[in-house]
Write a protein that binds this DNA or RNA. Sequence first.
DNA 1: CTGTTAGCGCGTTCAG
DNA 2: CTGAACGCGCTAACAG
Lengths: 337, 337
Amino acid sequence: MKSTLANVASRAGVSLATASRVLNNSAHNVTPDLRARVLAAVEELHYVPNAHAQALVRATTSTVGVIVHDVSDPYFAEIAGGIQRVATDAGRLLMICNTYRDAERELAYIDLLRSQQVEAIIFAGSGFVDRQVERKLTAHLESFSAAGGRVTFIGRHHISGDAVLPDNIGGGRDMGKALAQLGHRHVGVICGPAQLTTTDDRLNGFRAALQEAGIDLPDEYLIEGDFSRDSGARAAAALLDRGMPITAIFALNDLMAVGALAALRERGIRVPDQMSVAGFDDIAIARDVTPTLTTVRVPMAELGARAMAMALEPPTDHFRVEQLPTSVILRESTRQR
Amino acid sequence: MKSTLANVASRAGVSLATASRVLNNSAHNVTPDLRARVLAAVEELHYVPNAHAQALVRATTSTVGVIVHDVSDPYFAEIAGGIQRVATDAGRLLMICNTYRDAERELAYIDLLRSQQVEAIIFAGSGFVDRQVERKLTAHLESFSAAGGRVTFIGRHHISGDAVLPDNIGGGRDMGKALAQLGHRHVGVICGPAQLTTTDDRLNGFRAALQEAGIDLPDEYLIEGDFSRDSGARAAAALLDRGMPITAIFALNDLMAVGALAALRERGIRVPDQMSVAGFDDIAIARDVTPTLTTVRVPMAELGARAMAMALEPPTDHFRVEQLPTSVILRESTRQR
DNA sequence: CTGTTAGCGCGTTCAG
DNA sequence: CTGAACGCGCTAACAG
C-alpha cells in the first residue's frame, strides 16, 4: 500500500480535501473528530507527503542550492556550516554541489538546481575573472531570477546580485603592513589561480601596503598555486629554488601556507627563525600546526550565515553588498627581522 | 513566459509528445526537421525540465540522500568526497544532511528524504548503541525500503541493511599491539561518546590487544570526549590531572588527538619524549601537526565510494557487509619507551 | 512518425 | 464544515 494522501483519506473515511486540510493546518477548520481520524491514518501508514507533488502545485520549494568549489576544503566546509545552520533554522533543505573549480560544471549545476525548482542559489567561493564565463553565468542565472529565484554570492563580485564579501583587499593590505612592520622587505607570495578574483584582491591589497612602505614586489617573488595544500608545498619549494633573498612567504590561503610549512620543514629551514610564513583565512588547523600560523582571519561561518539570511529575505530593488571585516592574527610563524 | 515543455512544443509548432521525445531520445524516432525545431525552441526559452514533474511520473529520482553527523568534520568530509565522486559519475545528485549526532534529527531527515523520493539513503558515521533508537530507525527505514528505496550504512552495524565498515576492532587491536611493542604499559584513552558503536569497537580491539600483552587498562585510564578537537584537549588535560603514570595517550579519533597535542604543548609536555600520542582515522592534518601523528589509517574516501556503489547496485536477497582494512601508521608522535 | 489523452500526488477553488 | 473537480508539468500508452 503506497503512502499517498488518497490512501490516508480513504483509510480515515474522509475526502482528499479534508485530509489535505488537516495536514496543512488550513484556515478551514476541520472537526476534531475527523482531524483525529486523519492523523491516525497518517500514523498507521507512515505517510509523508510527496515533496514533488507539492512542489508542482505550490509556489516555492523550501530547498536551496549551494554551489561551492569543494566542500571538503576546510574553507568551504566552514562556510557550508554557517549556511546550514541558518537554513535548518528556517526549515530549508540544502543541495550542495561541488564544481571543483570547473566553470562548465558550474553552469550545469545552475540548470540542475533550476530543474529542482530551488528557491535560491548560493555561490560560495571566488568567481572567475574571465569575462566570457561571467557573461554565460549571468545568462543562466537570468532565467532563474526571472522565475522568482533568489541568488546570493559569497566572496565574488564583478557580478550582479546580492553578495556578502570578506574584505580581501583590506586583509591583504593589513598583512602587508604587518610583515613590513616586522622588517621583511623581501616577501615571496604563493598566489591562487590567476583567474580567481580572490587571488587578485588579496594580492593587490598586499602589494599596495608594501608599496606604501616603500617595498617592491617583483614578479619573480610571485608563484601560482591552486589553493590546495600540496600546491603550496610545491610552490614554496620552487620559490626557494629561485634563490632569492626572501625572508618571508605569504600564501594567499592557509591550506597552501600549511603546505609551505611542510616543504620548509623538509628542507630543514626553521620557521620563523630562518623564514616567516603567513596565510589567509584562519581555518581551524592554523592553530594546530607548528609553529602556529600567522594569518588573516576571515569570518567564514558568518559569511555563510549572512548569505543564507539574505537569500531568505524579500528581494530589494537594488543589489545589496555586505562586506565583513577581516583581521590579521599574529601567531608563531612570523617574527621580527 | 514560463519555461515549460508545453511552451517549447507550441513554439516549435509540434505536439507535447514530440517535444518530450526529442528531449528523452525516446526509442521513437523523430524527423530531423522537427527535432531541430524543438531543440531551437529549448535553446531560446532556456528550457530545463521540471524535475518534480518528472519525478511524479518516473519510477525513480536519481537523487540520493546522505545523512552524516557533520560534513565540516574532516572525517565526514572525506567520506562525502568519496560518495560525491561516484555519485557524479553515475549522474546522481546528493542531498547532504547533518544530524549533529542528534538521533531525533536523524529520524526527521529520513522522512524528509523519503518525501523527496530519493532513490537511496546513505548513513555515514557510527550508530547509537541505544536499542530503542535503533528500533525507531528501523521502523522509519522500513517504509522507505518497502517503497523500493535502497539503504546503505557506513561504519554502523547492529542494523539490518547493506553496510561497508572500516575494521575498527582490528585497527584498535593493531594500535594496541603497536603501543605495547613500543614498551608502553600505561596508556590513557580518550574515548568517543559512550553510545556510539565506533567507540565500542575501537576501544574493545585496543583493550584486547593490551590484555594479550598482559597489560591492564583500568577504568581510570579512560575518559570520554565527543570526537571534537576541543573535547580532546579538555580530556587530555583532565587525564593529566588525575596524576596517573601514563606514558602514552590514545585518542579514538585524530581530531581529539590533535586537541590532546595542543593541551600537552600548553603544559610544556614534550611529545613524544615525555608522552606518546596516537589517533585514529588518518585525516589530512595528521601529517601537518607537529610532531606528525601516529594513527590508524581508515580509507574514508573509499568507504564512501563503496557505499555509494552498493546503493546503486541492484538489491540482493541478503544484506551485504563489506569490511575495509585499516592499518597503523607510525609517525613522530610515538616512540619507544 | 506524430498527436491525443490519461494519469502521477497534491493544493485549491467552488459548490453543497 | 466538507467534498468533487481542476490543474501543476511531464511521460507513457494508445490511436491515427
